[in-house]
Amino acid sequence: MRNWLVRDLAGIAVISAVLVGISYFLGWIPIPGMAYYNRVIVTIGINIILAVSLNIINGHAGQFSMGHAGFMAVGAYTSAYLTYFHFQPFLATLAEGPGRFALQQALFLGALLAGGAAAGIAGWVVGLPSLRLRGDYLAIVTLGFGEIIRVLILNIDKIGGARGLSGVPAFANFFWVYFFVCIVIIVSWRLVRSQVGRAFLAVREDEIAAEAMGVNTTHYKVQAFVIGSFFAGIAGGLLGHYLVYLNPGMFQFTKSFEAIVMVVLGGMGSISGSVLAAVILTVALEGLRFVKEAFGLTSDPRMVIYAIVLILLMRLRPQGLLGNRELGDFFRRRKGGDR
């Protein structure tokens, strides 16, 4: 018996059970406005997935991507297409009951994975030209790809085009969002402590030296793009099935920018930093909503504040909150860094 597989499956079962427990607990808490807090918590989760997955591309592999929203859109629309046009009508023909419930969960998981796969393929396509580009050129190209994807979606009438797609089944919930939060964190954590992740890091540190050590830099850049985009696609799928509505405007490059701010604030390359930053920024954002109302602002101050955070961060602490370390490193004996 392959006991490592058994161990991982058991781990997943435990995580799932805990998440189910928490979601019942959250549903039970009898305070007013709990629905609102629930929404914030789910938004945090989706943003964590975005930030951690972008961190694989930007932080670990060092490829400055500005097209994350595009991959998210691909995943969102692919999975919504499946559930809206195929799974939902099919489920409606079945009788209520635990069987239908289980099937719905399974189909939703399938739709999310399909969305992730579609986004991963898009990431592969974007990753390919990136092999010849460095830094800022890549930023522009990924941004351009994100825009191309958006324009394409605008032109596909079947999925709503510019009108958007409303009535996406409400399959996503706390459980699914945090299930994938756990998965993306574990995957990214294990990757970076493996040959694959070290190759990412080598590419980030010095491409010429990496090639000299036998690292096929192209291959790993593309791989980082595919893995990162896969999870962006999952995040998109979760978002669509949570908001029960999709619209190309949700995936403009301001969305990519938000993800970048999270990764940069957390410290490029730090997984726990990305998580931390996603939590901080999402909560801060909710706070800003009140600021906006209190001051009667006509426009959203969020982007302005993001911008200022980013500029100040580059001046005062360019390595972000955690640098390229993880939270745990700060509790262990400080390792002879020079910071």
Partner: peptide, 11 residues
């Protein structure tokens, strides 16, 4: 070993 081995911590 591949990325899948890395993610699954295979033998």
């Amino acid at each position: 070993y591949s990325w899948a081995d890395s993610v699954l911590h295979s033998i």
